[in-house]
């Protein structure tokens, strides 16, 4: 089972992101479950959603407390919310920011983690470029695919087009591709750096 927790703010499509990710996993023939943190939060409030997928039937209904990956849609949540609770040292982190991971001021918090699994991606910039709106959720899923390899890029692409019909789907799919390429190249970069 692979478990993902997505943090963001109300209005950024946090719940939609988990749903699309689950559909992508479903399209790959896996069992998948996505659900929100069930809040009554309004626009702008911190929001959490969850997605888990597995090759076996998923029975559990508990929230994702030990995620394999955490996606942060809003960088301003750092130091506001316990974003990395339960994340194992083998876990993945993808943060929506144009800064680099090391610039985010985590100190020695991630010392025990794999550097190539900790990434940032300027998903809002990518979304603004492709959608004209600051909705980073779909783009981050492209980045997630590149970072973890758990879900194929084309499954995300298909799920995004299913969710957003017509031209909006096209534009979101373009953002997914751009973020995927961005993160994929950064992963390669880090891998090259660590082998050198």
């Amino acid at each position: 089972m692979f478990q993902v927790r997505i943090h963001g703010r109300g209005g950024q499509g946090v719940v939609t992101a988990a749903e699309i990710l689950s559909v992508a996993a479903f399209d790959e023939g896996r069992h998948a479950q996505a659900f929100p943190s069930f809040g009554s939060e309004r626009t702008g409030a911190p929001v959490v959603s969850f997605c888990r997928f597995d090759d076996r039937v998923i029975r559990t209904r508990e929230p994702v407390m030990e995620p394999d990956a955490v996606i942060i849609q809003d960088v301003t949540l750092i130091h506001q919310v316990d974003l990395f609770s339960g994340l194992s040292p083998d876990g993945y982190v993808l943060i929506n920011t144009s800064n680099s991971f090391s610039d985010l001021g985590f100190g020695d918090f991630f010392d025990q983690y794999h550097t190539e699994r900790l990434m940032t991606c300027p998903a809002t910039d990518i979304a603004l470029e492709h959608l004209g709106r600051p909705l980073p959720n779909a783009a981050l899923l492209g980045g997630f695919a590149a970072l973890t390899g758990e879900i194929a890029w084309d499954s995300i692409d298909k799920a995004v087009r299913e969710h957003f019909a017509g031209p909006v789907g096209e534009r979101n799919a373009a953002a997914v591709r751009a973020a995927f390429d961005y993160v994929a190249s950064k992963v390669k970069e880090v891998a090259r750096a660590s082998t050198n």
Binding site: V23, F35, P36, R61
Partner: peptide, 8 residues
């Protein structure tokens, strides 16, 4: 929420 809002 646990079921009504879960996508599966």
């Amino acid at each position: 929420f646990i079921l009504t809002h879960a996508v599966e």
